[in-house]
Structure formats: structure tokens, C-alpha cells
């Protein structure tokens, strides 16, 4: 049960070693940097040190209580990330798969709209626009 914010890459396989031992179901999700049809070479991700860790821990604890998770892990990177690199991962462990899947979706919906990260596009010519929030991401929270 942990949340981490880091610049360095992570190894999902290593992160999952021993994760959820004793649970019946483990779900993992990882988000990668898209190339947006060749428009992007990288993303620059900014965050709010201190608040980020608090928010991720709070959402992880809320998911654990709501879905009865036996374990959870959130890792989110910041800094410059090249196309294809991992941005973040969530892993959830529960007795049965439905709770593990739902908890992973719940965490992703909260992370996208409520965790203090901001993405900036970097194209072949250098830094471009800040990524705008999608209304669909905000709407997704209403289902919880």
C-alpha cells in the first residue's frame, strides 16, 4: 500500500514481485506517452511536490476502503518522458477480479482529474502547448 512520485523509470515486473500475495486477483494499468500521430516526441510533466503524494495516498486509501483491497500501489513519474515511456502505473489486489478492476478504474479516474499533475507537449521543434483537461475525464468521476 504505497504511492510514489518519481522522475526515474520503474520496472512493472519488479514492482509486482510479491504484490498482492494471498489475494485472488491483481489488476495493473500503466499509461504510456503517446506520439499523437508523430506530433510529439515527449511530454514534460510538472507536479505539486507535497500535495501530490498526499493526494495519491488519500485516493489509494479511499479505494482500499471502498473496494476491500488487500494491497494497492500507485507510481507516477514527472519530468521529461519520451514517447513510449511509462508515465504511471496503478496496481490493485483484491479477493475477486471485479473489485480489483473497479478499484483500478476508480483510481485512474481520480488521478486524471484530481491529482496535481500537468502535462506539456514537446514536439520536434521544442515545447508546445499544455495539455488541456478533457470534460470526459471530469464526467468520469460522477460514476463513483
Amino acid at each position: 500500500m504505497s504511492a510514489r512520485v518519481q522522475r526515474a523509470p520503474f520496472d512493472i515486473g519488479a514492482e509486482l514481485a510479491g504484490f498482492g500475495a494471498g489475494a485472488g486477483a491483481v489488476v495493473t494499468f500503466s499509461g504510456l506517452v503517446r506520439d499523437e500521430d508523430g506530433r510529439l516526441v515527449a511530454l514534460e510533466i510538472e507536479h505539486y511536490p507535497g500535495m501530490t503524494e498526499r493526494a495519491l495516498t488519500a485516493y489509494g486509501e479511499a479505494a482500499a476502503a471502498r473496494f476491500g483491497l488487500s494491497d494497492w500501489r500507485i507510481i507516477h513519474r514527472y519530468g521529461r518522458l519520451e514517447v513510449g515511456e511509462q508515465i504511471m502505473m496503478v496496481a490493485t489486489a483484491a479477493r475477486h477480479r471485479v473489485a480489483a478492476f473497479q478499484a483500478a478504474e476508480y483510481l485512474m479516474d481520480w488521478l486524471k482529474s484530481r491529482a496535481p499533475f500537468w502535462k506539456r507537449e514537446i514536439g520536434p521543434d521544442g515545447p508546445g502547448n499544455w495539455v488541456e483537461a478533457r470534460s470526459g475525464d471530469e464526467d468520469a468521476l460522477t460514476r463513483w
Binding site: S113, A115, P116, W118, K119, W130, A133
Partner: peptide, 10 residues
């Protein structure tokens, strides 16, 4: 007190 645009994590 912090001010920022809508968040775009994940």
C-alpha cells in the same frame, strides 16, 4: 495557497 489549471495526470 496554490493556483493551477485543471489537472491532467494519469
Amino acid at each position: 495557497v496554490a493556483f493551477f489549471p485543471p489537472m491532467t495526470g494519469g
